[in-house]
Design a protein around this nucleic acid. Structure first.
Lengths: 157, 157
DNA sequence: TATTGTTATACTCTATAACTATA
DNA sequence: TATAGTTATAGAGTATAACAATA
């Protein structure tokens, strides 16, 4: 008769030589998170030369392709809370990569724009990002890479 | 003649109506992170009833399928740093979901085992996780879901 | 000498409440 | 009344250094 909290197996306290991860690896969430962390790890290395974290790159990239975008629009698009964006924007402005200009139709809002220095940095950074993509997806065929992105979009869009 | 930090475009300060995210959505890392966050969001909802975060579920699941696994093995497998695992293990032990037993061959290590209560909880939780998978991957065909996991593994393994 | 588990601690990331100025 | 931007602050997550016990 075993007590309530007795572990399974009377022989007790076996050692684990090789960890079996097959169950976790069958789960979509686990695989998506591990893959995302792997890509981010390479991203951090390659983007260190620009002093850009993934979130900084995302913000600057959205400003690049949407000149005049507001902080609110950045927050909504990237899932960042407004109080947490303020510091990032201030830092990028201090580095003279972006400038705030009055919004043409809403006096409360500020439109964000790249400076010429910001434009140059992002040309280089987006080139690096493109190289990073091919590196990370190196073991995938071009078709597989396209399929992967298409299926990921179906998950979160 | 424009100064060094003048934004592109003399007409200045346009407004952005619809944010163009096409560039970010072409990047693997961005899509992987968004997908992972989407899955984790549903996970948090469904697992709240068990009071399990994703990391708790991962730890308990590895103990389930590897009775006697050590803290060090959990850290290596899940990419957790040892100091950050201590509190989680203590909390799970306090909830009487796991027990520590001496390692059969290494006096420094402790083997981790589920209690009967832990076994019951994980039977339910893994059943919930299975349902969650079909829900999240609901817009994917079974073949697509398998393909997605296969391609994600190629990224991080 | 190296490793397991641990404590203490610092840093980053994320979240909530409340304020201001404009709409 | 509602929204954009901001401040202050709290909480969660992640990081390094250093120690005791054992290999």
């Amino acid at each position: 008769m075993s007590a309530a909290n007795t572990p399974r197996g009377a022989a007790a306290a076996p050692a684990v030589d090789k960890v079996d991860t097959s169950y976790l690896e069958s789960l979509l969430g686990y695989n998506a998170r591990r893959a995302a962390l792997a890509v981010i790890e390479v991203f951090l290395e390659r983007m260190a030369v620009y002093d850009l974290r993934p979130v900084d790159f995302s913000v600057l990239s959205l400003i690049t392709h949407n000149p005049g975008i507001t902080s609110r629009q950045l927050c909504t698009t990237l899932g960042i809370l407004p109080p947490n964006l303020v510091g990032m924007i201030n830092a990028l402005e201090k580095r003279e990569l972006i400038v705030r200009r009055p919004h043409p139709r809403d006096g409360r809002a500020m439109g964000l724009h790249l400076t010429q220095a910001g434009q140059k940095l992002m040309r280089d950074a987006e080139r690096t990002a493109a190289g990073l993509e091919t590196e990370v997806a190196g073991r995938l065929s071009p078709t597989e890479a396209k399929t992967l992105i298409r299926l990921l979009k179906k998950i979160y869009l």
